[in-house]
Every structure is written in C-alpha cells, then in structure tokens.
Write a protein that binds this DNA or RNA. Sequence first.
DNA 1: TTGACAAATGAATAAATGCTCATATATTCA
DNA 2: TGAATATATGAGCATTTATTCATTTGTCAA
Lengths: 111, 111
Amino acid sequence: MLWKTIRAETDTARNDFDLETAGRLAELFSALADATRVRIISLIAEREICVHELCAMLGMTQSAISHQLRVLRDRRIVRYRKQGRHVYYQLDDEHISELFRGALDHIKHTH
Amino acid sequence: MLWKTIRAETDTARNDFDLETAGRLAELFSALADATRVRIISLIAEREICVHELCAMLGMTQSAISHQLRVLRDRRIVRYRKQGRHVYYQLDDEHISELFRGALDHIKHTH
DNA sequence: TTGACAAATGAATAAATGCTCATATATTCA
DNA sequence: TGAATATATGAGCATTTATTCATTTGTCAA
C-alpha cells in the first residue's frame, strides 16, 4: 500500500494521499525530468567528476552545467567537494540509482 | 553499473550514457513530475477510478483531470476501460509503484 | 428525440524551465 | 601583483507546461 489511510473532515475513512507528500514526490521527480540532469547523474553515479570535465563529457557550456548542478544541489541529490579551483560532484543518494534502475525497467518493457 | 561502456570516436573507452536512453528516462520522470499526476497515480494504484470520481477526490475540474490523464495515457502509465458513460482508469505498470516507493524512501531520508 | 451526464479536446494564458550571455568570485601560478 | 583557470550566478529569451474556458463527442434515460 502506497498511501496511508487518513480520516477526512466528513469523518469518512478513505484511502487518500498526503498532499504535501505528493508535492515532494513531484519535486523529486522533476529534478530527474531533464535529459541533461539524467546524463549528469549517470556520470557522477560512478565516480566524482569536476564541472569542467562534465562539460567536456557532455559537450555543453560550463554555465549550462553549473545551472543544472545547482538544481541537483538544491534537491540534495548530489554532494560536492572543493579542491583548489575544482569542485567535484558525486551522487549523494543511493535511492536515486535505484530510481534509475526502476525507470530503466519501465522503458525497456514499454518501448 | 547503470550504464554500458561505449567506445568514443577518440577510441578511448569511457563510461558513458546512452543519449537516447537519457531522453527516455527524462520523459518518464517528467510524467511523474507534477503533484496532480502524482495524486492521480496514487489513487488509481489501488483500484480503477472513473474520471468524475477522480475530480471529486482531488477537488479539481474535469478538464484539468482529463488533460493530465492524457499525459499518463500517452506515456502508457495508465490503462483505461470504458463502461457506459464512464471511463475507468488504473495504473498500468508495476514499475511506477516501485518508483514511488523508492522516491518515498528518498524524501524520508532527505527531509 | 430531447435533455442530462461523462469525458475529451483545442485555444488561450500564466507560470516554470533550460539555455545563452555577461559578469562575479575564488584559487593557482608566474 | 596580475593573468589564467574554475565555478557560480543573474538577466533575458524561447519553449514547455498546467490550468481554465468553451466546445464537442458519446451514452443513457425519459
């Protein structure tokens, strides 16, 4: 069962979602809802990579990558480590890798 | 390992993503990247529900719900069954429920 | 047939999003 | 110090997205 059963004002028990939880889930999924961020995550899932290396690997501007990394930072999906002029990013949540695996299963069985 | 290793033009083996796969993953996640759709999915994960009942449960207009259901239909996330004037929707993929579970784990450990 | 109900859809609009460009900040090295 | 490199960030712009409103389609019941 995904959702807890709550009791509405009508005093009628019904199976329902938690509105705030729905918002948080949507927020998490929207962090993954962009091909550039998916590519970034796929790379930093294996090892930590600094920004300009990510730019080279993805063939995108530093600004674009930094903006996307900010999204991932804000949502606590990545952690980073500063070393000199470099900032190394790495995936900070095993759940994200699991989500990717599940999503890969879906697109394999769908397409 | 999430991604297959491919060989680039430089003939240097490197760990990389599949660009098309990244796009498909992003597409899937964006289907879940909205609170209304998350709420719909949470409801029809348990049992099939017709459109106007969804509207009542979510307190939203029929048009808004139908538009969102179209997104879920197009991405093959839901299946539906017509019965008289009603159309009953139901979740059509176990992977989606698994994704939700994983995502719930994430937000529990993050917030 | 007519009217009521259920659902889908197209156009319009406001808000969010992803990128570029320019610039700011910070660190290293000569 | 000054130049070069690495990263972050704000503004602007084009595109996408979620909703509303109006309309259409389809089914049931009188």
